[in-house]
């Protein structure tokens, strides 16, 4: 029995992860994804756990290498889009990305910004990043796009004085601040503990 759900989570990775885990707890395992579609198949309740990771900063090769590494560990993975864009011939400049991922196109990580990772539940916590240093790096990656948008709208606000640009800059600054607070907290912890 399959079940189709249509959802859009955008950049709310934690909400998407929570929802997938809630579906798994109810006995639905992810089978396929499309733009808005999540197709599930029946499974034992709580048999699988999910994590959603942002890989939009990686080059196509690095993202694929990472995905293959996870598959080799026995996890199942699904690429997922973070934005909705139905235009053809997509090209995006991502100044916050790693060198190989700064120009994102259909052939790279465009529309494959997220990696949904599935693990069979074994009673242990399912974490992909377990050291402070790694968690700080990952949180920094998540902060990047928001910070970039904040800077862009602040720049527009200066060049074309209009309150709407400053409102947008402030809106994009909120998630950037949220991730920054997490980075400060992790850095504080890392001063006396390694992991």
């Amino acid at each position: 029995m399959s079940k189709k759900c249509y959802r859009f989570f955008g950049g709310a990775l934690a909400a998407q992860e929570k929802w997938l885990n809630r579906m798994a707890a109810r006995g639905f395992r992810l089978a396929r994804t499309e733009k808005l579609l999540y197709e599930f198949e029946a499974c034992g309740p709580g048999k699988y756990q999910y994590r959603v990771e942002f890989v939009g900063q990686k080059s196509r090769k690095d993202a694929e290498d990472y995905r293959q590494f996870l598959e080799d560990l026995g996890y199942r993975t699904f690429y997922k889009n973070i934005n909705l864009n139905y235009s053809v011939g997509k090209v995006r400049w991502r100044p916050w990305a790693e060198p190989g991922g700064r120009i994102a196109t259909n052939a790279t990580t465009y529309d494959r910004e997220l990696l949904i990772v599935e693990k069979e539940a074994d009673g242990k916590p399912f974490e992909l990043h377990t050291t402070y240093e790694d968690q700080i790096a990952c949180t920094g990656v998540l902060r990047g796009p928001w910070l970039c948008m904040t800077a862009m709208f602040a720049f527009f606000g200066v060049v074309f004085p209009n309150i709407i640009f400053w409102v947008l800059a402030a809106l994009f600054a909120l998630p950037a601040l949220y991730y920054q607070v997490q980075i400060w907290r992790l850095r504080r912890e890392a001063k006396t503990k390694e992991w």
Binding site: F69, K124, L128, T130, T131
Partner: peptide
């Protein structure tokens, strides 16, 4: 005591 996450191990 030390359980490495897959992402951390990859890095």
């Amino acid at each position: 005591r030390l359980a490495l996450g897959a992402g951390t191990l990859y890095g």
